[in-house]
Amino acid sequence: MTSLPEQTERKLGLAIDLDTCVGCHACVISCKGWNTENYGAPLSDTDPYGKDPVGTFLNRVHAYEVTPQDNAPFTVHFPKSCLHCEDAPCVTVCPTGASYKRTEDGIVLVNEDACIGCGLCAWACPYGARELDALAGVMKKCTLCVDRIYNETLPEEDRVPACVRTCPAGARHFGDFADPDSTVSRLSRERGGIELMPELGTRPVNRYLPPRPRDTLQGCAPAPQGDPSTEGLTGFLGWIDRTLSRF
C-alpha cells in the first residue's frame, strides 16, 4: 500500500560524518557487493569492462569543494544514498503498491515482484536515491540492509548495513532516530546534523554531520594572478629583464 504510515515505531537511518569521510568509496563497493549477492535482483552492470561502463549503485560518493567567505577552500566527500524520508514522495507516487514505508522501522523498500519499472518514483525522489536496473527492469534502492540488520545467522557486529560495517574511517553510523538516546540521535544533536533539501518537505531521516569549523588559516591568501611582475628586479636578472623588454 502506497499510503505512508502516519508514524513509524522506529526511525532507522544513518548519520554520516562529513568531517570523517575520506572518500575511499569502500561503502560504495560493499553496498554493491552485498546487494548483488543477497536480497532482490542483483545490481547489474552493462559493458563493465568495455568502453562505456554503466551500472546500478545504491550509494555513491560525490566530492565537493566548499569555499567559505573568509577562509581557505576545503574538500568534502559526500556519500549519498536513500534518506528513508518520513514524507517519502517516492512511495505515494507508486501506481502498483510496490514501494512502501515500513511501519515498524521506517525503512523504505521496493517489492520487486510488484514493480512495473515505470520509473516515476525515481523522478519523485529529489536526491537521486533510486535507480532503475537496466537488466532486471525494476527499481533498486537502499534497503538499509534489511537482510543484515535483523539477520540472526550473522555475528552480532555484522548486523548493521554493509556500508557502515565496512567504513574504515568510522564515518557512517547506523541507529534509531526515534530514540533520543541512540548514538545517531546524540551525534546529530551535538554536531548539528543536516537535513538535505528541507525546502522540499520530504523530512529525511538520515542526517549529515557537517565538517567541524576549521581554524582560520593564516597567510593562505590566494596566489597572485595575472602576469608575473618583474618590478624591482636588480642585478643579473634585472639586466636580463631590461634586455628582453626591448624586444
Binding site: H62, Y64, T67, P68, P126, L196, E199, Y208, P211
Partner: peptide, 10 residues
C-alpha cells in the same frame, strides 16, 4: 541546500 554545505560557503 542539496548538500547542506551551503551554510558553510560556496
Amino acid at each position: 541546500t542539496a548538500t547542506g554545505l551551503g551554510l558553510m560557503g560556496r
